[in-house]
Design a protein around this nucleic acid. Structure first.
Lengths: 126, 126, 126, 126
DNA sequence: GTGGTCTAGACCACG
DNA sequence: GTGGTCTAGACCACT
């Protein structure tokens, strides 16, 4: 389920957090479902347990998961909403992004076409 | 001219590089123009000279400026083109961005409207 | 492994870069191998960590190595090719060099003999 | 006669020294001839007089020219020999150069052909 | 432990 | 005055 890219610039724990969010967002994991155990995931990904722990802690701090000692780590009820509202600020990133593209002479048309394409097609996973 | 934001997550030297690029992109600084001297900028921004130096070195490594010891740091002839082609990959960033917004339920319409707005209005600086 | 010459005119970080390239070129270090840690090398050579860092950053900027924060600095897959193509321009340096030698009256024969010698013998390190 | 390249990495005074040497080596300037006056050259090249002075001092220190206060700067009798013997160490540079070319896989043949070409043809000025 | 960024202060070569 | 290199020592994020 989880995959990590050691060559990536992104810290591993961040890759894990983002993937968890994506899984929840796309419905692959639902409220109440459990996440893989730290030990288990640690072995499967050949990643230091601390790193997994950090990712889980991060998700827990934001209320997306809650961990029950001795049992595991579960997706909370409001997880989906929390993630969605957290990602709202992506819009300002998009804004900055588009501004830059305008600056280097990218046509408005190109951006709109790209948008249309993404919303139409079933965008394949990266 | 240059402004730095100490609260930003972005390293200072990176902020400087991006601003220099923006100035060149918008024509505020042109080929042949000189950038502020390392020391001068250092005191104006209350930033260590080494940090300024790093920014300038970065720009020089990419061929955007060339620095002449004892004289100063100047915008190279092909600066504009270099920056533009370097920023081309921003499109893939945009793509990823839009995918995420789609995922959290943002309407296509919203994105297109935002695009229209940016391309119409003279977007004020953030 | 690495050695620095404090009397040399060449900056230390440049000496390090060149040695790293040489090690990769001669196969002493291969793709995927890790370079010595910044701190480790720093103490071994009695050189400031920043200086080592600069050398590594330089190599990273050119795609010869990639550094993973918290893990180390590794030789990239295409390192060998990058170095080779970068050194191609050495030919024009050679050209200028030979021109000068011609000017001061060095015989063509001498240069050819030198070339033969280098290509035959396993040239010992300087 | 003298030309300087402001974009060059080489310091101006060094460019001047090298050109003077070249002029003497090729017989354009001979022993006893006078070099342009500091003031004169300074104006013609739009270069700081200090920079010209530094070049001349450098040549004088090496016995290639001698300056007569109030009269000018003249090429000494042994100038040619001094320059030639000074450039002898170019051979070790050449050696290092060829070693590197061997390392990146350049054929011996290529180097020899280049040498032949330079020694045969009247190499045009760079 | 690792790399990355920054500060403070120094020295050098160049113009 | 300019840029370039280096040292010393600090702090941060990541594993």
């Amino acid at each position: 389920m989880f995959v990590i890219n050691n060559m990536s610039q992104k810290p591993i724990y961040e890759q894990l957090v983002e993937q968890a969010e994506k899984f929840i967002l796309t419905g692959i994991i639902k409220s109440g479902d459990s996440l893989p155990s730290v030990r288990n995931l640690s072995v499967n990904l050949s990643v230091n347990p601390n790193t997994i722990q950090k990712a889980y802690t991060d998700l827990a701090n934001r209320g997306i998961v809650f961990s029950v000692p001795g049992k595991g780590c579960f997706v909370s009820a409001g997880a989906l909403d929390i993630i969605k509202s957290a990602k709202r600020n992506q819009i300002s990133v998009l804004k900055e992004n588009i501004k830059q593209l305008k600056l280097i002479g990218i046509e408005k048309r190109e951006i709109i076409e790209l948008t249309e394409k993404i919303y139409k097609g079933e965008s394949s996973d990266d």
